[in-house]
Amino acid sequence: MEKKTIKIISSLGTDFNSEVDIRGEKYFIQTEEGAGKKPRITTRIYMKGRIIYSKETDYRDIMDAPERDKRVRECMQKQHKLAIGILTAEQAANERTVMDYLEEVKALLGKNKEENALGVLNEALRNHTGNPFLLSYYGCLEAVVNRNYKEGIQACTQAIETLKQKVPFGEEFFYPVLYLNLGKTYLAAGRKKQAISAFQKGLDMDSENSELRKILRKLGVRRRPAIPFFKRSHVLNKYLGMLSHKFTKQ
């Protein structure tokens, strides 16, 4: 379903009626003319039968104007469209961004509240369907919290493929965290070999990523030699390894 759809139900007779669907929530907008001693145009927005917005405009100043009916309908249409604009603008302003959700998820994970973080991600993906970063964290936590390993691995893998299509550059900035989540998902599933492979792919893109290096050390995996086609004991690999260790400690 689209995030926002507007359906004009009626613009005939004496009123305008529209139905607006924003992220699955339906709103009904009605604009009608009220004659009598106080001629006015009234617009109301309803949500689940409750009025959440109302505006009245007095149009006595055009009561005796030429083409009075046409002028009134033009005013009604303008006020009706304005109400729709206000509704959609307010909803857009209230919508949380991907970064808002990710910051909350990371804060919850820092407090070891994985279940709460998963709940936030479920909401986030309803509002930002298919976002690769949200999907990656979701897959990881789905495996860790619910032990749904198959879905978790699929989600993490899909996140990487989606990002490759959307952002085919800047690997060192975007991909390490996705491979980190994929590796954690494999670990939760007891697939250590695939986990190490995922962690190393992330480290290949960002060799100084502290979280990836830390988790590989815990798994007993040594860093790859600086020059892969030489043995680890080769003098160049030893020298470059010492230099790397020296600078990373600073």
Score class of each variant (00 low, 15 high):
Lys166Trp: 03
Ala117Lys: 00
Asp64Trp: 09
Asp21Ile: 13
Gln158Ala: 12
Ser244Arg: 15
Pro225His: 05
Thr88Gly: 04
Leu219Trp: 04
Asp58Gln: 07
Arg191Ala: 08
Ile160Leu: 03
Asp69Met: 13
Asn127Cys: 13
Gly49Lys: 06
Ala89Tyr: 06
Gln154Val: 11
Ile62Glu: 04
Gly49Met: 07
Met47Pro: 10
Pro176Tyr: 03
Val120Ile: 04
Leu243Ser: 13
Ala195Met: 03
Glu95Asn: 15
Leu125Gly: 01
Lys214Ile: 08
Lys111Cys: 04
Arg40Tyr: 08
Asn17Thr: 10
Tyr138Thr: 01
Pro176Gly: 03
Glu33Tyr: 09
Leu125Tyr: 03
Tyr27Glu: 04
Lys111Phe: 04
Lys218Ile: 12
Arg68Leu: 09
Phe247Glu: 15
Tyr59Asp: 03
Met205Ile: 09
Lys113Gly: 01
Tyr179Asn: 00
Asp64Ile: 07
Glu171Ala: 11
Lys111Glu: 06
Asn209Tyr: 06
Val177Phe: 05
Asn112Ala: 01
Ser10Thr: 12
Gln30Glu: 14
Glu114Ala: 10
Gln154Tyr: 10
Met99His: 12
Val167Asn: 09
Lys55Asp: 08
Ile9Glu: 09
Ala124Cys: 02
Asn209Met: 07
His234Trp: 06
Asn112Thr: 00
Thr157Met: 10
Glu211Pro: 03
Met205Pro: 13
Asp64His: 14
Asn148Phe: 07
Gly130Arg: 00
Leu102Met: 04
Gln194Glu: 12
Pro39Val: 04
Asp204Gly: 12
Glu171Cys: 11
Arg73Trp: 08
Ser136Gln: 01
Ser233Leu: 12
Asn148His: 06
Val167Ala: 07
Arg23Tyr: 13
Thr129Ala: 10
Tyr101Ala: 01
Lys70Leu: 13
Asp61Ala: 11
Arg96Gln: 07
Leu182Val: 06
Gly139Ile: 01
Gly85Arg: 02
Tyr149Asn: 05
Val144His: 05
Gly190Gln: 06
Lys81Ile: 08
Gly34Val: 14
Lys106Trp: 04
Gly152Glu: 03
Glu2Pro: 10
Thr248Gly: 10
Gly34Glu: 09
Tyr175Cys: 07
Glu142Gln: 14
Asp204Arg: 08
Arg44Cys: 10
Val105Trp: 00
Arg71Asp: 07
Lys246Pro: 15
Leu182Tyr: 01
Met1Phe: 15
Asn112Gln: 06
Pro228His: 04
Leu118Cys: 02
Lys4Pro: 13
Ile84Phe: 06
Asn181Asp: 03
Lys249His: 14
Ala198Cys: 03
Lys26Asn: 11
Leu12Arg: 14
Ala124His: 01
His245Asp: 08
Ile22Gln: 02
Glu74Cys: 09
Leu141His: 00
Leu108Tyr: 00
Lys113Thr: 01
Thr97Met: 04
Met205His: 07
Ser10Ala: 15
Ala143Thr: 02
Leu82Ala: 15
Val177Tyr: 03
Leu219Thr: 02
Ala159Leu: 01
Arg60Leu: 11
Lys106Cys: 05
His245Phe: 15
Ser233Asp: 15
Ile86His: 08
Arg50Lys: 14
Lys81Cys: 15
Glu2Trp: 11
Glu115Gly: 09
Leu180Asn: 05
